[in-house]
C-alpha cells in the first residue's frame, strides 16, 4: 500500500527523528497521519506500518486499542468532538452533545451512513477557559452556543 507523496515524504522524515534502531517511536504518529489520509486504521494500514517499522502486527494492534484518536472504523469527513468535561459541562457541553447527536442521528463514536459526519463525546480538549468547546477534525470552535453549533453543522453539511 502506498500513501500520497506528501505523506511518504513526511514518513521518511519522521523515521529519522528517533535514535538508530528505535524507529518504533514513529509508530503512533504514523498511524494517526495515515488515518487522517485513509479515514481509519484499516488492516492494510496496520500491515504496512508494521512492515515499515519492522514491528509485529500485534504491537500495532495493542497501540490502537489504547489511544482514543485511533479508529478501526471510518470516521466521517467531518469528525465532530464535543467536550463534556467539567468546565464545558458547567457551560452546557452536555446539552450541545445531545443536540448534535439528535441532529445527526448518531451516537458516541458513530458515523452517519453517508460518511459525512462522525461524532464523539470527548474528554477535556484543553479549551476550558473558553468553554464549551467543539473540535471539528483539528479546528477548535470555542464559546459555543446551540445556535452557533447549528450553523456550524449546516455550513459543514453544505460543503459536502
Amino acid at each position: 500500500m502506498t500513501f500520497s507523496p506528501q505523506l511518504e515524504a513526511k514518513f521518511a522524515d519522521l523515521i529519522t527523528h528517533y535514535p538508530e534502531g528505535r524507529q518504533k517511536g514513529a509508530l503512533i504518529p504514523m498511524l494517526l497521519y495515515a488515518q487522517d489520509e485513509v479515514g481509519a486504521v484499516t488492516p492494510e494500514v496496520i500491515a504496512e506500518v508494521a512492515s515499515r517499522l519492522n514491528v509485529k502486527p500485534v504491537e500495532v494492534e495493542e497501540v490502537i486499542g489504547y489511544y482514543t484518536m485511533l479508529w478501526r472504523h471510518k470516521r466521517g469527513k467531518h469528525h465532530i468532538q464535543v467536550c463534556t468535561n467539567l468546565s464545558c459541562m458547567l457551560a452546557g457541553g452536555e446539552e450541545l452533545y445531545a443536540q448534535v447527536s439528535k441532529k445527526l442521528g448518531i451516537g458516541h463514536r458513530e458515523t452517519t451512513p453517508d460518511g459525512q459526519f462522525s461524532l464523539e463525546e470527548t474528554e477535556c480538549l484543553g479549551a476550558c477557559s473558553w468553554a464549551p468547546a467543539v473540535l471539528v477534525n483539528y479546528d477548535f470552535h470555542m464559546k459555543m452556543t446551540p445556535e452557533k453549533l447549528d450553523r456550524l453543522i449546516e455550513s459543514l453539511g453544505s460543503k459536502q
Binding site: N85, L86, S87, E123, C124, G126, A127, C128, S129, W130
Partner: peptide, 11 residues
C-alpha cells in the same frame, strides 16, 4: 500533552 481538566495554558 495538556489534558488535565481545567487546564488550557500550554497552548
Amino acid at each position: 500533552d495538556e489534558g488535565e481538566p481545567g487546564t488550557c495554558k500550554d497552548r
